[in-house]
Design a binder for these strands. Structure first.
Lengths: 241, 241
DNA sequence: GCATTCACTACACGCCGTTCAGTTTTTCTA
DNA sequence: TAGAAAAACTGAACGGCGTGTAGTGAATGC
């Protein structure tokens, strides 16, 4: 079945793909306006001049659509942070980490509903599926963060390294990937990367969910400060600029 | 009208208060079973042998009920972390901070839906009201954290203090409270406290929302590690135990 | 040219929050 | 203590939701 798919798509298939994309586009628009809960099959259909039932020809259920959207949005997020990282020279470990973190916050502030979709409760009892684009995007994010930590690892003070971790402490897939990409990197570095992820996520989540606004007038300064502290704790010199 | 309320509550008022409490209790039970979205006026009424409309005699709207619940749950959370902190001797700054952090995670794992209720999207367009129990609880949490940082402040390395903050960078109410409770404490300490909050919240939120489970097998170890790093970065010696 | 496939509509079901007129129960008062 | 006033509650309704299912009309392929 995987042979000879070279023929251009049928007119039918083209229309079909286009409609599926329109559904997703409108869903994202609705999400941007009213949050993940505004993604309603009936609202999408209304916007498209269709009936809600028609969407079931494209997505088996609302959760399926949401899952697809999460994958798309998450991928866009990882694209953004990776691009920001790669805009810095490869030997500027501190700059690359800071660029990643700053791009994450910039993206989150520009797409607050997307952040909620990816990291919050999109659906009541929603459990992300095992594989799929969302898992891939998360894998990229984790691997990217580990890469940033790996670049900084030679500078890290030994005091920070004493926690005892082994590869079994981490997901098999991620562990294998990291051992391939960064031979010789100890598993403790993965723990540092995940903790760095937590430091970024924590202040961002608090800010985006409104828990910081009545308390701190400039959450961005707090966040930058936190990232500089992180860079410093890795033994890196933050850039003077 | 405010005069002479000394009389014991009417039988009516007693029954009324009891019913209101039953509503809240059942709502929390439903939340524990099915998350915040399972809090449904109809489900509550069903469980009580009532009609959904009857609840409107006690709470003006579902959001009002949710708001009340958030306040209660948040208060319970702060009670728990404060108790854990106060179980340690006053001169053990590191132990008190670690106890606070550990109690936070313990509470969150025991009440994951409560964590979602307080820190996540309880309601689509929900904006927490200005005052109320939830704001009070958050104030207690912040003040408590600042207190923990204040105890550690004399030990902090000067390198960590160079960020420039002023009192206007923080909420008026919180600022006044802190200046009263900790005279001489610079505003930069508040920033450190909020960043510490972020470090706790980040790993916890990632774990509870299932973003860490496919990656790290023991998020608790990660969390403890992060907290030890935090304590160390404050210049405190973590307890040997 | 015609059978098949596909996209879609119309309708139904059960859930939800919310409102409101009416009924029942309790409390207060004359 | 009888009746008025107030409070508590019901039952039905409205609109909105996700989700199925039978039927319709047009495009596709032989």
């Amino acid at each position: 079945m995987s042979t000879v798919v070279n023929e251009t798509l049928n007119r039918r298939e083209r229309l079909r793909a286009e409609t599926a994309r329109e559904i997703r586009t409108i869903a994202l628009k609705l999400m941007g306006e009213g949050g993940p809960d505004a993604i309603t099959l009936r609202a999408i259909a209304r916007e498209m001049g269709m009936t809600a039932g028609a969407i079931y020809g494209y997505y088996a259920t609302r959760d399926d659509l949401i899952t697809t959207l999460i994958g798309e949005v998450y991928t866009g997020l990882v694209d953004a942070v990776e691009a920001a990282r790669d805009a810095r020279p490869a030997d500027d470990a501190a700059g690359r980490l800071l660029a990643w973190a700053e791009a994450l916050r910039t993206w989150a502030l520009a797409n607050p509903q997307g952040f909620r979709l990816v990291y919050g409760d999109a659906v009541p009892g929603y459990r992300p599926p095992e594989g799929g684009p969302a898992a891939t995007a998360r894998g990229r994010a984790c691997a990217g963060l580990v890469g940033l930590i790996a670049d900084a690892w030679p500078h890290a003070r030994p005091a920070r390294r004493q926690a005892s971790y082994g590869w079994p402490d981490f997901g098999e897939e991620l562990g294998a990937r990291i051992r391939a990409e960064h031979p010789g990197l100890p598993p403790a570095a993965v723990a540092v990367a995940l903790r760095a992820w937590g430091r970024m996520h924590g202040l961002l989540a608090l800010e985006l969910y409104g828990h910081l606004s009545p308390i701190a007038t400039d959450p961005g300064a707090l966040y930058r400060d936190e990232m500089l502290d992180l860079v410093g704790s890795l033994g890196l010199e933050p850039p003077v600029a």
